[in-house]
Nucleic acid binder design. Structure first.
Lengths: 201, 201
DNA sequence: CTCCTTTTTGAACGATTGATCAATTACAAC
DNA sequence: GTTGTAATTGATCAATCGTTCAAAAAGGAG
């Protein structure tokens, strides 16, 4: 046997997520990456292959973590719909916090907009992730429908797209650094949109 | 007197908008800019000062054109609210067209997300433009309220933010290249949100 | 300790970045 | 045609880009 790696792959990836999420793909130079990961070029290339490879893995890690967070969040709610509504309000609130995260906007959307006409491989990856998220939301809504939380006429896929667009808009709006109260109101208003599809008791 | 400029400033700016809108700030190199504008570096720098200066002017031109398009669009409608609803549906439709525009997503939002943590000057400009658009929408909604199209309880500013977030989400979703019918449905659903604030006769 | 393997290092690579400027070209005035 | 002014050109700049690799360093096995 021989020397063991000084760097934990997972830890390094988390740091990469932080940098890429904050500055984007083109906005993060290898020099900044070396500093953020505290790794020298050779180690980075031996571990991740290329800047593209590192970014791709970072994006995947970001998406996975985001999915986990949503799942955990929903566990705290009896009602799926109320869980989703609170999720929207939570995003709106976190956009008020200063320095809570590297960026308020979603890294996946940032990647999609940055690379759609310059870096097809990254755009494809972002698109796949967004499609998967949409699918997850659609399944959640379908379950909510079966549970009787949503009216029978709801098209789960269609409502999922509407909901995903709300999240995109909300988090992009967060990048504007508006007054926290304005953001809270926006979160409430978006949550209220779902009320229009709920069953009343 | 002497030689007159071979290039029309306005025409050059339109071409710059096309390139920057498509590829973003970091994604557009001076070489590509030279090609797109059919101008050599010296002429570009003599006319616009720097890449930053050119981008800034291009972004302003984009915003102005967008504002004009909204105003023209609304002229075709008796009802302000119906005009806004049709505006949303129009965006959703144009996202279905292939190659209709350099990009489906909004150049202002692309700029905000790309530069918020890397290029403060550009981010500030994007933020100012978004604030101005929000203000315009708020004034439109206020007029609609006075006209009796919207219920008395509507907070124009707050609804303007919700509406702007819809546009952001809708156009970002457009970048996903979804089925045109899905996009049309999304446009309809977003337009329907406004119905909740309308007065019924 | 001596080997052997693996990881880390940091100098260096060619390519490309945004930007500059002296030389050239084109036009208007006289 | 000559002159004067302004615009255009394209080679060229230093800096930075992502990437490579030979050499050094760090452990486990014998």
């Amino acid at each position: 046997m021989a020397r063991h790696a000084r760097y934990d792959r997972k830890t390094a990836l988390e740091k990469a997520v932080g940098l890429f999420w904050e500055k984007g793909y083109h906005g993060s130079s290898m020099k900044q990456i070396e500093q953020a990961l505290d790794m020298r070029p050779g180690s980075i290339y031996a571990t991740f292959g290329s800047k593209d490879g590192l970014f791709s893995e970072a994006l995947a890690a970001y998406a996975e973590q985001g999915g986990r967070e949503l799942a955990v969040h929903l566990q705290g709610f009896e009602s799926i719909v109320e869980g989703l509504q609170d999720y929207l309000r939570g995003i709106a609130c976190s956009c008020g916090d200063e320095n809570a995260a590297p960026s308020r906007a979603c890294m996946i959307v940032k990647t999609l907009l940055e690379s759609s006409n310059t870096h097809p491989a990254l755009a494809d990856q972002a698109n796949s992730i967004l499609a998967a998220i949409e699918q997850s939301i659609a399944e959640l809504l379908e379950r909510a429908k079966v549970k009787g939380e949503l009216v029978e006429s709801v098209d789960s896929r269609r409502l999922a797209v509407l909901l995903q667009a709300q999240i995109m808009g909300l988090r992009s709006m967060g990048e504007r650094n508006l007054d926290p109260q304005i953001m809270r109101d926006l979160g409430d208003d978006m949550a209220a949109i779902l009320d229009g599809f709920r069953t009343r008791h």
